[in-house]
């Protein structure tokens, strides 16, 4: 499925300074029964966000009206655990377009890239600077430029470059996905398939 193009994002950010945030927290398994990709945002961080009687937990950041924006800023090893793409869908469906962390789990990172959420890995130092800025002013804006591969704290002008391979960068800026690419080389694949032993 082609998705929204991503070039530059200028927005406030939501801080979640917890390490090892796993995909079971991002979207608990009991919400994986859907057969369509709709409504996952409602259950993003369900058990951190709501009590068992479905009342909101006031101390959780998504329930704090002070914070908003299209960037989620998570602690190291963000997205560890299951391969459920539903976790990335929940992040997207809630309204985030970018997750910043100092370290991502592999599959989650790949899933984000495949659906048009940009995972931005920054240094642990820069991550702390972002947290500090949000703490100081929750309305402070950040700029994530995919084109320049750079994230900037607009209030201070400090910025840091980030990595992404050219192929994925191209895909995201154009809103293409891997299947579009693979279908284009279908002939090669069919040829290759003839020679596989298994």
């Amino acid at each position: 499925m082609a998705y929204d193009k991503f070039t530059t994002l200028k927005t406030t950010a939501v801080p979640l300074p917890i390490e090892n945030v796993d995909t079971d927290q991002i979207i608990p398994a009991r919400f994986l029964k859907a057969t369509e990709r709709v409504g996952f945002g409602d259950n993003l961080f369900r058990d951190w966000r709501y009590n068992q009687d479905n009342t909101p937990k006031e101390d959780f950041v998504l329930n704090n009206p002070k914070y908003s924006g299209k960037i989620l800023v998570g602690g190291a090893n963000f997205g560890s655990g299951s391969s459920r793409e539903h976790a990335a869908w929940a992040v997207y469906d809630y309204g985030f377009r970018c997750v910043i962390s100092s370290f991502f789990a592999d599959i989650f990172r790949g899933n984000c890239l495949n659906i048009g959420v940009l995972p931005v890995q920054v240094s642990a130092d820069f991550l702390q600077k972002i947290y500090a800025e949000i703490e100081k002013n929750p309305n402070s804006e950040f700029e994530v430029s995919l084109v320049e591969q750079k994230v900037t704290i607009l209030a201070t002008g400090e910025s840091e470059p980030f990595d992404i391979n050219d192929y994925k960068k191209d895909n995201m800026t154009n809103g293409f996905d891997d299947i579009d690419y693979l279908l284009n080389i279908k002939g090669n694949i069919q040829e290759f398939a003839k020679s596989t032993p298994l």
Partner: peptide, 21 residues
């Protein structure tokens, strides 16, 4: 393990796109 977009990819093309770990 793979995500759902990749499940679709493999169903459609029997291939997956991955940087070599």
């Amino acid at each position: 393990g793979i995500g759902t977009s990749e499940v679709e990819m493999v169903l459609a093309t029997q291939c997956i796109m991955q940087p070599k770990p």
